[in-house]
Structure formats: structure tokens, C-alpha cells
């Protein structure tokens, strides 16, 4: 090994030590800091999956915008779906700070090379689903996301702070919608219970596989891009949700769900992990439809993007001539 090699080696070690010290002190890694390649690629994957989830997540509820039962519910739902689009864009913006290319991320989503949250592959046949998604799905998302406001990657942490503030509206509007239905007719109460029965288990799957099978957890915890394990967050969500379900007057569909005074937590039944595996690998009720809708939106919008670019180019040319 010659002197130049030794210098390069020492330089790399020093940069890695700097990086680790920054994380150790709970400071943030910023875009132009040196970072290990694996940290960068893991962050791009995590942020892109999250961005894709927000964008695909517009579909299940978006389907109800034209059929919401009142102007009030329509305006709320429109604002909520617009927020999901906004969240997707904050996150794509954060991914770009790592050198990711935005059109390439969209291409990866459409071609199935990058994933999004399995929860959005379930259908929304009833208007109660809009409420239950706000309550359970956004509730689970908040559990997952609040700790990410302290992610070691600065731009992601800052995007998460904005997102969490807005998610709180999402959860509350959902719960209020359900309270309204529960004060309605017997048929409306049945509608809520039927929706809860369908969404409860998929919501628990949102926290990912059990810790024993989670492949990225250890490294992600060391890098402080994940702050709690999947099982810890799942338990927190169950404990938070049980009293909310009682206040609402619905039953969570799990015969094994009960308070365990010794643990100070609720025990609950085993999630059907084979279902999660199936839905993640593409075989959920709506996977094909979700991707197809996203692809069509992208392709149908191509002429708008091109026209806007042509218009901008023409204006720039004219301004150049006038100067």
C-alpha cells in the first residue's frame, strides 16, 4: 500500500468517525455532509416508500370526494386528500436532497420496483371507511411518524414535523365522522362496525413484520433513522386505540384483546403475517388498480408537463429578445 492509499484510508475513517459522532450527539445529518453509501441508499428507500404511500394513499379516499354526503364532508375530504399530495411532495423534495431523481422515483413506483404501504391496497366500499381510515390508518401513521420527527436525517425530520401537524387534523376528522355515524341510525352504526372489522388487522400490519423477522431494524436503530421497533409501536397503537374504540362504542375484532395488568399493556391476538406478505408482494385486493391509476395519471398528465415547459421556454426566449 503506498502513501496515497494510506491517506485516502485515513480520510475515509475520519469522515466515518465524524458521521458517527454527529449521530451519537443526536445532531442531524445534512444533505451535503459525507455519509456512508448504505445510509444514503437506505434513506432514499425509506423516504421514497413514504412519499409513494402518501401519493397512492390519495386514491382510497379520493374515490369518495364526489359522493361525500354533504358539502362540509366534501370540503374536509378534499382538504385531506390535498394534504396527502402535499406530504408526498415534501418527501420527494427530501429525497432529492440525497441525489434521488424525482421522475426516476415515479418510474420505480409505477414499475413496481419501489413499494408503498400495504394498507392502501385495501378497498373503500363504504363511506364509513373514510372515517375509519382517518381514525385507525392515520392514527397508526401518527404512531409511526412522530418518532421520525427526530430522524437523524435533517430534511426528512423537518418534513415529518410538518406532516405530523397535518395528520392530527386527519385523525380527528375521521373520528368525528365516526361519532356522527354512531349517533345516527342502527344501519349507520352497523356500517361503522363493519368497516372497523375490515380495517383493524390491516392497520396493525402497518407497523411491519414482527421484530424477530424485521431485517433492517438493528442498523436503522443504530443510525437513528428508526427510533422504536415495529412491535413497540404496534403495542403503543393498540394501547392508544382501545379506549378510543370504547368511547366510540365499537368492538375491535380480536377475541384475544384484553388488558394485562402485569405488563401494563393490552395483550392482543396474532396478526396474519401471511396476509401482509401476500399484499406486499402484490397480491392484495387493489394493488393492480392502484398502480394502474397512478400510471394513467402520470401518462395523461404528460402533455400538461410538456406544454408548461414549452410555455416557459417561449417566455424565456421572448424576454431574452426584449432585453
Amino acid at each position: 500500500m503506498d502513501a496515497a492509499d494510506t491517506d485516502a484510508r485515513t480520510g475515509a475513517d475520519a469522515r466515518l468517525a465524524d458521521f458517527e459522532r454527529t449521530i451519537e450527539r443526536d445532531q442531524r445529518i445534512e444533505p451535503r455532509d459525507w455519509m456512508p453509501d448504505r445510509y444514503r441508499s437506505t434513506m432514499v428507500r425509506q423516504i421514497a416508500q413514504h412519499a409513494h404511500s402518501e401519493i397512492i394513499g390519495m386514491q382510497p379516499e379520493g374515490a369518495w370526494i364526489t359522493r361525500a354526503p354533504s358539502l362540509r364532508r366534501k370540503a374536509i375530504l378534499l382538504a385531506k386528500v390535498q394534504d396527502e399530495a402535499g406530504h408526498g411532495l415534501y418527501l420527494y423534495s427530501a429525497a432529492e436532497t440525497l441525489g434521488a431523481d424525482r421522475p426516476e422515483l415515479t418510474a420505480r413506483l409505477i414499475s413496481g420496483r419501489q413499494k408503498y404501504s400495504s394498507i392502501f391496497n385495501y378497498p373503500t366500499p363504504s363511506f364509513a371507511d373514510v372515517g375509519v381510515i382517518g381514525w385507525l390508518v392515520d392514527g397508526a401513521a401518527i404512531c409511526n411518524q412522530v418518532p421520525l420527527c427526530r430522524s437523524s436525517y435533517g430534511p426528512y425530520a423537518r418534513a415529518m414535523i410538518r406532516i405530523c401537524k397535518e395528520e392530527s387534523f386527519h385523525q380527528r376528522q375521521g373520528y368525528e365522522l365516526l361519532m356522527t355515524l354512531m349517533r345516527g341510525t342502527e344501519a349507520q352504526r352497523r356500517m361503522v362496525q363493519e368497516s372497523v372489522d375490515r380495517w383493524w388487522w390491516p392497520s396493525l400490519m402497518m407497523f411491519g413484520p414482527p421484530d424477530a423477522e424485521s431485517t433492517h431494524t438493528a442498523q436503522s436503530m443504530a443510525w437513528k433513522i428508526k427510533r422504536h421497533t415495529n412491535d413497540e409501536l404496534r403495542q403503543r397503537f393498540v394501547d392508544m386505540t382501545v379506549p378510543q374504540a370504547a368511547a366510540l362504542g365499537v368492538t375491535l375484532p380480536d377475541p384475544d384483546l384484553r388488558w394485562n395488568a402485569e405488563r401494563g399493556h393490552h395483550d392482543f391476538g396474532e396478526v396474519d403475517w401471511s396476509e401482509l406478505k401476500r399484499v406486499i408482494s402484490g397480491d392484495g385486493p387493489c394493488n393492480a388498480e392502484r398502480i394502474e391509476v397512478r400510471r394513467a395519471a402520470h401518462e395523461d398528465g404528460a402533455w400538461v408537463r410538456e406544454a408548461a415547459a414549452a410555455h416557459a421556454a417561449k417566455r424565456a426566449r421572448r424576454e431574452g429578445e426584449a432585453a
Partner: peptide
Amino acid sequence: VGSLRAADAEMALRNARDLYTRR
């Protein structure tokens, strides 16, 4: 507050309003 993509500066302003100042 972040970044966005737009065809020109005028569109960037409008998109920034919709994206970063909804509340």
C-alpha cells in the same frame, strides 16, 4: 421550507403557495 419542481418561476410561486402555505 423545502423545494419543488416547476416549469418557471411564476408556477413555482403558485405551487409553493399550495404546497407550503395551506394553513
